[in-house]
Write a protein that binds this DNA or RNA. Structure first.
Lengths: 105, 105
DNA sequence: ACGGTATTTCCAGAACTATCGAAATATGGA
DNA sequence: TCCATATTTCGATAGTTCTGGAAATACCGT
């Protein structure tokens, strides 16, 4: 993962509302959670929620699948793992300057 | 770590310039890096750099120690570890709700 | 096609962020 | 004290984000 991508992912998660959305999706597990359920849970205006979900979808942290009239949102674990991998490899070790430390995953 | 704190940390890192600053400090290791060296490295205006460093210092990701006229910046590994710990515990596992964390909020 | 539910898009305003030059401040040395 | 270096603060501007109401769109059952 490149630095700019990591920054984009971090920015997407760097908002309390979006982080709550993401955490709710993680807790929902593989079944995911409909936009409407998120709206009930978080109690924010539908347009605002849609705006934040989009920000997460754009960077790949969340995916959506339509089920009739409802849209089910899923957390994308793989992208999160890549992000955490980047942080651990590039931002956690005192000798991160050796670029080959990205092997961890 | 609380969700709002995690979001604040993620927001601080969620900017390419700030993430570069932070990574440079990690790579500098325990010796840290003076603001001026960062400025040479990243080639941004001193005022802009100061602004970004402050954002990192405010959330505790970076600390500063004065050495005569120069200010040495250090990455705070512990805060980063806490942040990664939050992400792993709350945002990486499919059954995050069944962990030692509280139930849905 | 119609009606109903689910969700997004559009619009707008307030608040915030990023940027940088210029001026101010901090520190130590001559 | 006065100067030089290092860094921050101030001020201004352009662009972006957050918010939510209203309208539009998507989909399904009948």
């Amino acid at each position: 993962m490149k630095l700019d991508d990591a920054a984009a992912h971090l920015e997407a998660l760097g908002n309390p509302t979006r982080l709550k959305i993401y955490r709710a999706l993680i807790r929902a597990g593989g079944a995911g959670l409909a936009v409407g359920r998120l709206q009930e849970k978080l109690k924010i205006a539908p347009s605002t929620l849609s705006h934040h979900i989009k920000a997460l979808v754009v960077v790949g942290l969340v995916t959506q699948v339509r089920d009739a009239t409802t849209l089910i949102c899923h957390a994308n674990y793989e992208v999160m793992r890549e992000l955490v991998g980047f942080l651990v490899a590039e931002c956690c070790t005192e000798s991160a300057e050796t670029k080959d430390t990205k092997t961890a995953a």
